[in-house]
Design a protein around this nucleic acid. Sequence first.
DNA 1: CTCCAGGACAAGC
DNA 2: GCTTGTCATGGA
Length: 219
Amino acid sequence: MLPIKNIFDHLYQYYGEQHWWPADSPYEMLVGSILTQNTNWQNVEKALTNLGDNLNPNYILNVALFELAQQIRPSGYYNQKAERLKIFTSWFARYHFDPDTVQQMDADQLRLELLSIKGIGKETADCMLIYAFNKPFFIIDAYTRRLFHRLGYHVPLNYDNFRILIESQLPRSVQLFNEFHALIIKHNKVFCSAKPKCHHCPLDSMCCFLKKSDINHIL
DNA sequence: CTCCAGGACAAGC
DNA sequence: GCTTGTCATGGA
């Protein structure tokens, strides 16, 4: 079977640098990681645009919950996500909204702390760890499961089992994990969208022929 | 009309 | 421990 590192090499060679996460500031990235939960990024962008200059910790903490919910409405689950933004931002306030201060923490301890926050699950935590806090954890999302399943790997249902399986086959590098995840998303957007066009798929994975309803058993 | 998209949580068994 | 219901908009 194709070594995991080779999958990265193929994708990187084909798509090049992805320059993730698409955000102007660490806090915007953190907000985006919550808004994008089970949601199309296009809708998240609409929500971020609605927030505009209000996309800062002090506004999120002080604005009325209902008003915040209305502003992030396009991202879906807006009532839940408004609450989650406030809860997360309250946690961030302990560190004076300073990512560098958070970064000084031990990686495993920080992950546990993020997971203790209501509304932050494993995938969102690992996104934050990689893209805002510079800690090496490989992000497992639906796209990652779909891709590796299609390539013939046995995909553990348990999140951490799958994460550790991949991490064990790669150098523990923030930059590598950062780029790999971005490439997987990019690959799915190009080849696994509604209209299949995988004639030149760099992995020859044909993942675009799999509908989500066909692979629910691996999610 | 139906199905999907960078999930997470709580209740039920 | 695993399964199911809930949350919700916008685009294809």
